[in-house]
Design a protein around this nucleic acid. Structure first.
Lengths: 142, 142
DNA sequence: CGTAATTAAGTTGTGTACAATATAATAGCA
DNA sequence: TGCTATTATATTGTACACAACTTAATTACG
């Protein structure tokens, strides 16, 4: 196999490994908030953009209802969100922060700093990585 | 939140998204081999390095026995590998390619080219991304 | 208006991931 | 030798992730 062909394995496996590594960096930090990384992503969307439909959250996070429905039920059980059918269109479920959900935003504000610290990498390196990833994400053939 | 603090979200979420995107690029290609991406990774290890212990595979792929044991059982059910307890040390399970497992290596050799094609990115961009990822992976505080 | 097509969310089934724990075998050592 | 610690793998439980399908509601159109 040519060196160029091997490259896909040499890039895709590190991407896969890095993603797992990143999630495992978040795990102990998010544990204090009783959130998993995907749950934290949903909370970020709600903190930043307010009440959202299930499908709006799905579009922003690239997750489908098969993943989101049970995840949102778990967030609701923890009393961080409320799920209500829209009266205007009964198909739509609106996901809204509860007071508790809004309240933990303050604690969650400390997460990025802790992550930056455990990533242990310069801002410049991160910027470069972000540029490289955005590049690929935009160019992948859908 | 300062721009620098936001950066961790702006890097970690794309990493997480890209990894899912990459796995979903492999999915239709690997479907012809009846393999998932993690299963393909295990097969790559075996094709390149021959018979391995469960823990050796785990070290190379950053997966623990809780993930590997059921995955390897599925590969064994497909008759691609054999799992045998070592006679010298009964704790060790040796994972060995079957004739079928060895045989599909030929078809699998086409996978990297198909992935490179669907990534739709220049070799230079991939090399840059790989460098950025390896950088971070090496520097993350364990 | 009435029905077909579409849409939004939920359900089911399969397959990772991983923490925590269990089990069994081996190694180390008094 | 006998006991303790360690090691390798397996098991259990929880939580994604996604394909395929279902259900219920809304829209589009003849």
């Amino acid at each position: 196999m040519s060196e160029n062909l091997k490259l896909s394995n040499q890039v895709c496996f590190p991407i896969y490994s890095l993603a797992k590594e990143v999630v495992s960096l978040y795990r102990p930090i998010l544990q204090r908030l009783d959130l998993t990384y995907p749950q934290y992503l949903v909370m970020l969307v709600l903190w930043e953009e307010g009440t959202q439909n299930v499908s709006e959250i799905g579009t922003k996070l690239n997750l489908d209802s098969g993943t989101l429905t049970p995840l949102l039920k778990r967030l609701a059980e923890k009393n961080l969100i409320e799920r209500n059918r829209s009266t205007h269109d009964e198909r739509i479920v609106q996901v809204k922060l509860t007071a508790s959900g809004q309240a933990i935003k303050t604690t969650a504000a400390e997460v990025p700093e802790q992550i930056l610290n455990s990533l242990n990498v310069s801002i410049e390196q991160l910027e470069a990585l972000k540029a490289g990833i955005d590049n690929i994400l935009n160019q992948i053939k859908k």
